[in-house]
């Protein structure tokens, strides 16, 4: 169902952007070549006109949305709202990227990096598997690692390496700095 949804949005874009209205049959043929199976399209339900195809797309999108709404990890369950609450950490982290690096706590950011790494694995292993949580923690890992790099730079950990390398190249005596 998810694959179908992605494919349909892709199809709509292709049809409207490139004006391929008359190329619908060949588009479908390409889809089947790429291994994107649309069983209902290949059968006798195949829409013959542009309007019919649009109706078919709208209907399928509606049913895809209904399936999402009623899925065992959908918005009617805590499996959906748990990860949504966790996006708060990502947003807070993004806000903090605009603050001076002296504000960053190295311990807290380091802990966050380990925490998000562990929770990516947790999201994969837990039943039902939680892709939303996986994406959330992948994002958080990215933001927190960036923050950690800013913190390290401000502390001079990354700077020191550069000057050491420079010294080696230019053979400056150590007591010059």
């Amino acid at each position: 169902m998810k694959n179908k949804f992605i494919l349909f949005s892709f199809l709509i874009r292709l049809i409207f952007i490139s004006g391929l209205n008359s190329e619908i049959p060949s588009l479908l043929a390409i889809c089947s070549l790429l291994g994107l199976h649309l069983p209902t399209i290949h059968s006798h339900h195949c829409p013959s006109s542009h309007a019919a195809l649009l109706r078919y797309i709208a209907k399928s999108m509606a049913s895809a949305f209904r399936a999402f709404l009623n899925s065992p990890v959908g918005p009617k369950t805590t499996h959906f709202w748990g990860p949504i609450a966790n996006w708060g950490f990502v947003i807070a982290g993004l806000v903090d990227t605009q603050k001076p690096p002296e504000m960053i706590s190295g311990n807290m950011t380091g802990a966050m990096c380990v925490y998000s790494g562990l929770f990516m694995r947790f999201a994969w292993m837990v039943q039902p598997r939680n892709y939303l949580l996986l994406v959330c923690h992948a994002s958080n890992e990215t933001v927190q690692l960036y923050q950690l790099s800013r913190w390290a730079k401000a502390q001079g950990y990354l700077q020191k390496k550069e000057t050491d390398a420079e010294k080696l190249i230019t053979n400056n005596p150590r007591n010059q700095d």
């Binding site: 805590t78 499996h79 709202w81 748990g82 609450a85 708060g88 807070a92 837990v126 039943q127 039902p128």
Partner: peptide
């Protein structure tokens, strides 16, 4: 607010997973 919301929602989440 993020910490509080996460705490409350996840308290329930932890009991509905396997």
């Amino acid at each position: 607010i993020a910490v509080t919301c996460t705490g409350i929602i996840w308290s329930r989440y932890s009991t509905v997973i396997t």
